Amino acid sequence: MSKVRFLSRYHADKKSIPACLRGAIYALAFVFWDRDYTLKDTSMPFVQHELTDYAHQVLRREMENPNLFILQACLLLQHVTPPAMDTLEAPTTWTSSAQATACAQMIGLHVEPGDWNINATERHLRRKL
């Protein structure tokens, strides 16, 4: 993710960013709540697993029309720390990896975009993802 591009788009119109991607970012940012001096003395209005569950629910709906934002949400959600368990991987790790791979395939990331009529920023992001 490009922080500059994301924040620029977020400030212009946050609803133009799919809810699953916003939810994934909020869920990952949750662990930094107490490090912000303006927030650390306030109680959190949510818990991380609720944000993660919401992002996954929305992702299932938004996966019907995959795009680069949706793929980024898939990949980011794999980095949310699972609840304490006896294994290093959450049981959903494999299914979410398959979902991200399917999304990438559906939007053509397996094809070199060199000759496509798209801007350089999107071409770079496609290669990066």
Rank of each mutant, 00 (worst) to 15 (best):
Q105S: 15
A100L: 08
Q99P: 08
L77S: 03
V111H: 13
F6Q: 04
H79A: 12
S8P: 02
D36E: 15
C103R: 14
W94V: 13
S43N: 12
D13G: 05
L76H: 01
A19S: 12
V80H: 02
W33C: 02
V58P: 04
V58T: 11
T52E: 04
Y54G: 02
F6V: 09
D36Q: 07
R126E: 14
L28I: 07
K15H: 09
I25W: 09
F69Q: 11
A98P: 03
W94R: 14
T52Y: 06
S43F: 04
S96L: 13
T95N: 09
L77I: 11
H79F: 10
L109W: 12
L39Q: 14
Q48G: 05
P91N: 10
L7V: 02
D13V: 03
K3R: 14
L71K: 10
H49A: 06
L71G: 12
L75G: 04
D36H: 07
T101E: 15
L28N: 03
G108T: 13
S16Y: 02
G23V: 03
F30L: 05
F46Y: 08
H49M: 07
L125P: 00
L77H: 03
F46H: 03
T52G: 00
P66L: 06
I25G: 01
A100Y: 08
Y26A: 01
P18N: 08
T93N: 11
I17H: 09
I118H: 08
A27D: 03
Y26D: 00
L28T: 01
K40Y: 14
R60T: 10
V31Q: 13
H79C: 11
N67D: 15
M44P: 00
E89F: 13
R127L: 15
R61L: 13
Q57S: 13
L109D: 10
R5T: 02
P82Y: 03
Y26C: 01
P66D: 05
M85V: 00
D41Q: 12
A29T: 05
F32D: 15
R127T: 10
A100P: 03
N65D: 08
C20M: 04
T81S: 13
C103N: 12
D115P: 04
G114P: 02
K3S: 10
S97G: 15
V31D: 13
H124F: 08
I17Y: 06
A84H: 00
A73Y: 07
L59H: 08
A73T: 11
